[in-house]
């Protein structure tokens, strides 16, 4: 079961995910990310620190959200990836597609600078 909570830091939308992101949670995750991107959030950082597990359904949502963000000129990145989640990202090669940061702080810092510097 996945839970999520959204915060905003320095113009970056931080979506904290907790629990697991498997088949039963994938549609909810898609809705959450879709609503942020469609709502104009141009810098979305997913805080994966509290996520225990993600399967291919969750990965699929990240892949499509990453593509959607690119189409909209937005940025989607991950932070706090660890344990089984890190391993799944590596095995499915999602780590090559989606930018990841060690921590939320690092991610917020990088995305906020990129935003202001690039004028995105």
């Amino acid at each position: 079961m996945m839970e999520h909570e959204t915060r905003h830091h320095d113009g970056v939308t931080v979506v904290e995910l907790r629990g697991s992101a498997a088949v039963a949670d994938a549609l909810a995750l898609r809705d959450v990310l879709g609503s942020h991107l469609a709502g104009g959030d141009s810098r979305v950082l997913l805080d994966m620190t509290g996520l225990r597990f993600i399967d291919s359904a969750g990965i699929g949502v990240l892949v499509s959200a990453r593509r959607r963000a690119e189409q909209l000129g937005a940025t989607l990145a991950l932070a706090g990836v660890n344990g089984a989640v890190a391993r799944v990202l590596q095995m499915t090669r999602a780590d090559r597609l989606v930018q990841t940061f060690q921590s939320v702080e690092e991610g917020v810092d990088a995305l906020s600078k990129r935003s202001s510097g690039a004028g995105e």
């Binding site: 697991s20 498997a22 088949v23 039963a24 994938a26 549609l27 898609r30 597990f53 399967d55 291919s56 359904a57 990965i59 699929g60 949502v61 990240l62 892949v63 499509s64 799944v88 095995m91 499915t92 090669r93 999602a94 090559r96 597609l97």
Partner: peptide
Amino acid sequence: LGTLGLRDIEWASSNGIDSILAV
């Protein structure tokens, strides 16, 4: 990149799959 994810979540749900790992 070769990234692989599940696109058709409905397919998984209709097959009764709780979780799937496709590598």
